[in-house]
Nucleic acid binder design. Structure first.
Lengths: 379, 379
DNA sequence: CGCAAATGGTTCATTTCATAAAAAAATGGT
DNA sequence: ACCATTTTTTTATGAAATGAACCATTTGCG
């Protein structure tokens, strides 16, 4: 239906925002004549739209943009219980949302997801006429063909072909991806860092996850295990390196994960909820301050190691909103800064972002959107 | 002269070794007719040659291979003093070699390099008829256009456009690259790991260098600073974290670089040469053993961090031959293994390779060869 | 107001490119 | 000798990109 040329245009527009036909010809290095024909096709199919005129010297140019309603997608996040499902448009806006309990049994899980997808279709109404695919984000390893969950300790799954199951039941093409990868791929397609050729994301949840975009492509690694950061050995003095489930001592996740923080808080007689804990630290409670400072410093050190090794232009750290402006965030930034060597040129920018389980779901939806836009799994 | 199709064929043959026209058609996803025409052009220009027949059921297929003498290249390594220059063919074999003192002053340096290049041309004889380019590897940062050395503390250079200077004086296109990057790019084009889509290299010299290939492309990073590993905080217990020139304590290079090892050996009254030191350790001398064990463990920990973050299929560690089968190497492997989490699928393979200054020079030559083969700076 | 200059977008004949299909070549097996 | 099988070449056809001319629409200037 669409040729590589069409996809190139969609990819360019999605990456760099609206631009004129002539801009496209310049960017893609093809003739205006070719662009003209390809754009006409896409306008006829209601995938592109002409926006406002841009005036300069000469005839004004017409901005071309990808229509948000050109297609819609469903994203499924199994990252936490309950599972979150969203219906998004082609710009990543969430049109509808639903939660379902996350069943351990694969068959039951598929069952409840299919139900939830039907709910989303009903809720989406007319916008689901061009529903084009489903993406699934889950904590675990995914096969190379992105259909099968090869292993997930969190879900207790081994070799569950959830992609094929959902395709069969919904009739929609389905992509499965690791949760951290889905998150960063969503950011690459829909987020503020869209178009940046290299950046990394770190998220702090019950565990700690991480993923990288390098040369515009996801860094998957040989066995799909790239971005593993939670067992980085963080042995800062005075940390009393605690044993980790991986067998080593002093791993990052024994200090900086939400699970580790709340566990330590319980042992210290502090509130176990992260919100009240952060509030207490903000008031100056010494134990809460020390706990969050230690956790933030540890993650900061790991972030510095990441930056030294990959030199990304940005690192986005996704945090619980309660931690956003806390001693955790400050310690993180300070520790990271002090371990990053000065380089020529602009340094890596570290930014914080609010973490919400929905991010994984819309990241999952972006997997399907990506295919719609580029005709492949790469941008 | 050559079309993208021609370059695709050369790239495929260089990556996967000799294969038939039909194999090429299958691999590249184009028709046999197209391949036939493109191959004819390349045969006529003496870039490809037909090798032995491979017999199967029907008509035997003719193996096509890139001719080693299709072109030659000059590689310059400024990694150490003296500088090393090599003349290589299209398979990476060294045809001639020359050393010159590495002048600090840029103009003098260019002068002596031009002289040395003339010597190589003379020594190469007929094989330099198709001399196609020069590559330069240096310790420092290189501009994005790969012509200028932006900064090098080892050379004392800032913004030295050595690429333009050499192009002007030799009439040959010139590429400049960071030493570690040149090394890994050479491995990617000429070495045993050719064709592997993701691997990393670490080399131990007076400093410690590192570079990564990800998704078949060099991981450069935002400011060209990716692969920095020598200041990873390695704070293993009992290591008495020494202050580093970077301002922090316990950096990898304060423990595991040749400079750190020989300095520590001098303080301990041990031989300062790495060969005798390793020999002493092999005989069981406790101080020498402890010193090399500590250094190897530190590098092993850094390697483990690398593997966790990038999950490459291979890591090649380039070591002084004296260390090859020493306690250093064993400690490295052991420490790395103990910090790598089990993953699904085949794990990362860590291999040791003998380190020689010539590796940088032939890596530099590969920069020019790469352009000859792919028509761009990417494979 | 009118016209030149500048730029954006379209049309169309032409060329280039890739392909499918058919033919030719080279071998093993019967 | 003859057929099956596979590789490679040739040839006729069709799709796709292009250059150049052309039309459209604005600003700037006298």
């Amino acid at each position: 239906m669409l040729s590589p040329g069409h996809y190139q245009i969609l990819t360019t527009l999605s990456r760099g925002g609206p631009c004129s036909r002539t801009d496209l010809a310049r960017t893609l290095g093809v003739s205006k004549a070719s662009i003209s024909g390809l754009v006409r096709d896409l306008l006829n199919q209601n995938i592109l739209c002409e926006q406002e005129l841009v005036f300069g010297v000469g005839r004004p140019s017409v901005s071309l943009a990808v229509r948000a309603d050109a297609a819609s997608f469903i994203g499924v996040s199994l990252q936490q219980d309950p599972a979150v499902l969203v219906l998004t448009d082609l710009h990543g806006s969430v049109l509808a949302r639903v939660e379902v309990p996350r069943a351990e049994d694969p068959d039951l899980c598929v069952e409840s997801l299919v139900d939830a997808i039907d709910q989303l279709r009903a809720a989406g109404g007319a916008s689901t006429e061009r529903l084009s695919g489903v993406g699934v984000a889950l904590p675990g390893f995914v096969s190379h063909d992105r259909h099968t969950c090869v292993a997930s300790t969190a879900l207790g799954w081994r070799n569950v072909d959830i992609g094929a199951a959902l395709t069969e039941r919904t009739g929609l093409p389905t992509w499965v991806e690791n949760d951290a990868n889905a998150l960063i791929l969503g950011e690459q397609l829909f987020g503020p860092l869209r178009g940046s050729p290299d950046f990394s994301m770190v998220f702090v949840s019950y565990g700690i996850g991480c993923a990288h975009i390098v040369n515009r492509r996801l860094l998957r690694g040989n066995a799909g295990g790239a971005g593993e950061i939670s067992h980085a050995p963080i042995a800062i003095e005075g940390f009393g390196a605690a044993p980790c489930r991986c067998g080593n001592k002093g791993c990052l996740e024994t200090v900086a994960s939400l699970l580790a923080i709340t566990n330590a808080a319980r042992r210290a007689g502090l509130p176990e909820e992260i919100g009240p804990l952060a509030a207490l630290a903000a008031k100056g409670q010494p134990d809460a301050l020390a706990l969050l400072h230690r956790a933030g410093s540890a993650l900061g050190l790991a972030t510095a190691q990441l930056i030294q090794m990959l030199d990304p232009s940005h690192v986005v750290v996704m945090l619980d909103p309660a931690l956003h402006d806390s001693v955790f965030a400050h310690a993180l930034r300070k520790e990271a800064d002090s371990h990053i060597l000065h380089r020529e040129g602009p340094g890596t920018m570290v930014t914080f972002r609010d973490f919400a389980p929905d991010n994984f779901a819309s990241g999952a939806a972006s997997l399907a959107a990506r295919y719609f836009i580029s005709g492949s799994d790469e941008l």
